Simulated scan of single mutants.
Amino acid sequence: MSGEGSDIAGLRVLVVGASSGIGHAVAVRAAERGAKVAVAARRMDLLTELAEQIGGSAFELDVEDPGAIGRVVAEAAQTLGGFDAVVFTSTVAPMAHIEDTDVATWIHAFNVNTLGANGVLRAVRPHLSDTGVVLIASSHDVGRPRAGVAAYNASKAALNEILHSWRSEHPDLAILRVGIGPTEDTEILRGADRELLALLFKSWTKHGQLPAQMSALNDVANTLVSLVGTAYLNPSVVPEVVQLAPRIRRG
C-alpha cells in the first residue's frame, strides 16, 4: 500500500521494540503507508539498518532502564515534533517450568513486559497529539497460560491490569491493548533451550494449545497499523481491547 491516501499518511509514529519481529514489521508497514517513523530498541545494529530502510530515525533504548525511557522518548519526540501514535512491542518470554523459574527471571519479565510498557506510556503522554494513540502489544493467552511461560503470562496479565488503571484515570487517552496470538517469524523463542522447547511443544500439543497454523507476521503488522489509523481517525472511539488469533484455513 502506498503512502498517498493512506489512513496514517503523515502520522508521526514511534515504535518501541522495533529491532525484530512484530515491532520491526510494524515500522516497515507504517513507513510504507506514509507515516514518519522513529524506532527504538536495544540492538542498534539492526535498528540502524531498519531506520535506513524506512527513512526514519533510530534510538537505542533498553526498556528495563527507567531513566533511559524518559530521555530517549524526549529525543524521539523532538526529532518527530511529537507523536500521533506510539506502538510498544518489546517482549521477553522466558521459557522454564514454574518450579525452575528463579527470581531473576520474574524480575526480567516484569521489567520488560509490564514496567517497560508502563514507563513508555508515562514518558510519551506529554508528547502525544490531541488525538494521539498508544497501542500496547499484549498476549492472546492471558488467562489461559501454557506450561513453561509462567513469568511471561503473569507479566502480561499484570500489564492488562495496569492498562485498565490508565484507562480509568486517564479516559482522555486512546490506549489500545492488543492480545496477539501465535505469529510466524518472530524471535519470541530466541535463546530458549531446545530440549525444554521440545517438551513444552509436546505439552502444548496435548492440551490443544498450538494452532494448526500461525498468523503471518506481515498480516499482524498491517492489522496493528490499521488499528492505529482507525483509532486516530475516529477520536471519539477507543478500540480498547482487540484479540488477534490465527485464522485456520481449510485444506
Rank of each mutant, 00 (worst) to 15 (best):
Gly3Ala: 13
Gly5Phe: 14
Ser6Thr: 13
Asp7Tyr: 02
Asp7Pro: 14
Asp7Ala: 10
Ile22Gly: 00
Ile22Met: 07
Ala25Cys: 10
Ala25Leu: 08
Ala31Ser: 10
Arg33Glu: 06
Lys36Gln: 10
Arg42Thr: 03
Asp45Glu: 13
Glu49Arg: 12
Ile54Ala: 10
Gly55Thr: 11
Gly56His: 00
Ser57Ile: 07
Glu60Asp: 02
Asp65Tyr: 11
Gly67Pro: 13
Ile69His: 02
Gly70Trp: 09
Arg71Lys: 14
Val72Gly: 00
Gln78Ser: 15
Leu80His: 01
Gly81Met: 08
Phe83His: 08
Phe83Glu: 00
Ala85Glu: 01
Val86Gln: 06
Ser90Thr: 13
Val92Asn: 07
Ala93Val: 01
Pro94His: 05
Asp100Tyr: 14
Thr105Ile: 14
Phe110Ser: 06
Asn111Ile: 00
Val112Ala: 02
Val112Leu: 05
Asn118Ser: 08
Asn118Thr: 12
Gly119Glu: 09
Gly119Ile: 04
Arg125Tyr: 14
His127Trp: 09
Leu128Ile: 04
Asp130Gly: 11
Thr131Arg: 11
Leu135Trp: 01
Ile136Glu: 00
Ala137Trp: 01
Arg144Gln: 12
Arg146Cys: 04
Ala147Phe: 05
Gly148Met: 03
Val149Ala: 06
Tyr152Gly: 12
Ala154His: 06
Lys156Asn: 06
Ala158Pro: 15
Asn160Glu: 15
Ile162Met: 13
Trp166Gln: 08
Glu169Pro: 03
Asp172Gln: 08
Leu176Lys: 01
Gly191Cys: 10
Arg194Gly: 06
Glu195Ala: 13
Leu196Gln: 10
Leu200Gln: 00
Phe201Glu: 15
Phe201Gln: 09
Lys202Val: 08
Ser203Gly: 05
His207Arg: 09
Pro211Ser: 09
Pro211Trp: 04
Val220Asn: 02
Ser226Tyr: 07
Val228Asp: 04
Gly229Lys: 01
Tyr232Glu: 03
Pro235Val: 12
Pro235Ala: 08
Ser236Gln: 09
Ser236Arg: 14
